[in-house]
């Protein structure tokens, strides 16, 4: 392909040549981010509630403490207290082979395991690590959001005969969600950027595409500047979505 120089130094032809690779990488980055946002939010909700679980009478009281609050606290502490990069490596090279292994996988073994590991190994590990990591951070957002709702709201709802789950679903969470949107948005943006770390275990997402191109041409400005711009556009888009959600769910809010 003929060299195309922009501004006298930017080899646009390299990007054009690898357009498909960047395009697939972009799709993978978006896919991983979306899956992890959804799963991380669900996990974060569950863990956040577990960290707040309390009951009045035995044995539910002890159950809440030892079976819910403690494990949830340890989980959050671990995933917030260790580097995401290390978590990805640990899950990909140590945890996943334990469960999915042709020889003696605890979950899946044999030929299925071989295929799964070969074709989707990095994807599964990456999504799992990022989900677990995001879940820990999001659970703290949920916990803070739920705790920020005035006790009187719960009391009013319970006094009307609404059960605890109904109170959560209809009264507390909708209000907490409004306050949680800005930190959740920040978290989604972090998640999008952190997904680049999964390239280390060979998942063909944006950062991996850039590395491939850089290796092929020994040129670094073009691929890394290109994906930088792509990440930037994506994070701007996310920020825009969050802003709109905030406006939509802001009704009735006094602050």
């Amino acid at each position: 392909m003929e060299q195309v120089l922009w501004f006298g130094w930017f080899r646009a032809d390299i990007i054009a040549e690898y357009a498909v690779l960047f395009w697939r990488g972009l799709q993978m980055t978006i896919l991983v981010t979306l899956i992890c946002i959804v799963q991380g939010t669900a996990l974060g909700l569950g863990v956040g509630m577990a960290r707040l679980a309390e009951a009045r009478h035995a044995p539910a009281r002890q159950l809440c403490r030892f079976a819910l609050r403690w494990p949830a606290t340890v989980y959050v502490s671990f995933f917030r207290g260790t580097p995401l990069f290390v978590q990805i490596l640990l899950i990909h090279f140590a945890v996943l082979p334990l469960f999915i292994n042709p020889a003696d996988g605890l979950l899946i073994s044999g030929e299925t395991a071989r295929n799964l590991k070969q074709n989707y190994g990095a994807f599964l590990s990456g999504v799992l690590a990022l989900t677990l990591n995001a879940g820990a951070y999001i659970s703290e957002i949920f916990r803070a959001g739920i705790q920020s709702i005035d006790r009187g709201q719960v009391e009013a709802s319970r006094s009307l005969g609404m059960s605890f789950p109904r109170t959560m679903f209809h009264v507390v969470l909708p209000q907490a969600f409004r306050r949680m949107l800005p930190p959740l948005g920040n978290n989604a943006i972090s998640l999008l950027k952190d997904s680049s770390l999964i390239s280390a275990i060979g998942l063909a997402e944006l950062a991996y595409a850039a590395r491939t191109v850089a290796g092929a041409y020994s040129r670094y400005w073009e691929p890394y500047l290109t994906i930088s711009l792509m990440y930037w556009v994506l994070t701007l888009g996310l920020a825009y979505v969050v802003k709109n959600l905030e406006a939509r769910y802001g009704r009735g809010d006094t602050r």
Partner: peptide, 28 residues
Amino acid sequence: DALRSEIGMVFQRFNLFPHKTVLENITL
């Protein structure tokens, strides 16, 4: 919950649900 559904309570600080309209507060 069944017991409380027979006992109405009114609070000093009202405790209306701020994300719901007056109608929704009453019908919830």
